[in-house]
Computed example of a mutant assay.
Amino acid sequence: MNNEPVALIVIDMQRGMKEPDAEKRNNLDAERNIQSLLAAWRRAGWPVVSVRHISRAKDSPFWPGQPGAEFQPELAPLDTEHVVEKSVPDAFIQSGLERWLHVRGISSVVLVGVSTNNSVESTARTAGNLGFSTIVVSDATFTFAKTDYAGVWRSADEVHAMSLANIDREYASIMSTRDVLGLL
């Protein structure tokens, strides 16, 4: 990475993401990897953006005021760090994130968080389309198993791998935590 600050964008690492069955997700070390990246960004004094999903559905764990909508304590933003709230998967939609980055002269972003095939992929696509140099950290993101459109059950690893393949080299570069830390 060059001398220009790179924003670390931590997507939807909220308490409600701990509720789903851990057996149905991948990358069980993702939170630890995100913590490593957060520590490195904070040491460097680079910008950190925490994205919080606020649901429009009252029965969601992400409804405002619910415990699930709160950040996981070990990944919570510092008072000096920017927080973006969104009600759709894409962190750029109606959030002011693009403007916040441009005002600070930031043209490169690193994305981590959940879920790979939803909010991470959606945000990566928009970041790439808006011209940001974008990295998605493969082992600092995770997703959940699900049934595909043809009715075939896909493991979380399969869903994760396909999501990364969808954005690789077209919208973002895919890297590991170790490789990103090596660039610092």
Rank of each mutant, 00 (worst) to 15 (best):
M1S: 15
N2W: 13
E4D: 15
P5S: 13
P5D: 10
V6A: 10
V6M: 07
A7W: 00
I9P: 02
V10W: 00
V10E: 04
D12K: 04
M13D: 04
G16A: 10
K18T: 14
P20M: 07
A22F: 02
K24V: 12
N27G: 05
L28A: 12
L28R: 13
E31M: 11
E31W: 08
E31S: 06
I34E: 04
Q35V: 07
S36H: 10
L37I: 05
R43H: 11
R43M: 12
R43I: 08
A44Q: 13
A44N: 08
P47M: 10
P47T: 11
V51D: 06
R52T: 08
R52K: 15
H53A: 07
H53P: 01
I54E: 05
I54G: 01
S55A: 10
R56M: 09
A57V: 12
K58L: 09
D59P: 00
D59Y: 09
F62M: 13
F62G: 01
W63N: 09
P64W: 03
G65W: 12
Q66R: 15
P67K: 12
G68A: 11
G68T: 12
A69H: 11
A69G: 06
E70V: 11
Q72R: 12
Q72W: 12
Q72I: 15
Q72Y: 12
Q72L: 14
P73H: 06
L75P: 07
L75Y: 10
A76E: 11
A76V: 11
P77S: 09
P77N: 07
L78Y: 01
L78R: 08
D79R: 04
H82E: 11
V84H: 04
S87R: 07
D90C: 10
D90I: 04
A91S: 15
I93R: 04
Q94N: 14
L97S: 02
L97C: 06
E98L: 01
R99N: 08
R99A: 14
V103E: 13
V103W: 04
V109M: 06
V110W: 00
G113E: 03
V114Q: 01
V114G: 01
E121V: 04
S122K: 04
A124D: 09
N129L: 13
I135L: 06
V137A: 00
A140M: 05
T141R: 01
T143M: 07
T143P: 03
F144K: 06
K146F: 09
T147Q: 15
D148C: 13
Y149G: 11
A150L: 15
A150P: 03
G151Y: 12
R154D: 03
S155N: 06
A156L: 14
D157S: 11
E158A: 11
V159M: 11
V159E: 02
H160I: 10
A161K: 01
M162D: 03
M162I: 09
S163Y: 04
S163T: 05
N166H: 08
R169H: 14
E170N: 05
Y171C: 09
Y171S: 09
Y171M: 07
A172S: 13
A172I: 03
A172D: 08
S173N: 08
I174Y: 02
I174E: 05
S176D: 08
R178P: 00
D179I: 06
D179F: 08
L181G: 05
L181S: 03
L181T: 01
G182I: 06
L184F: 15
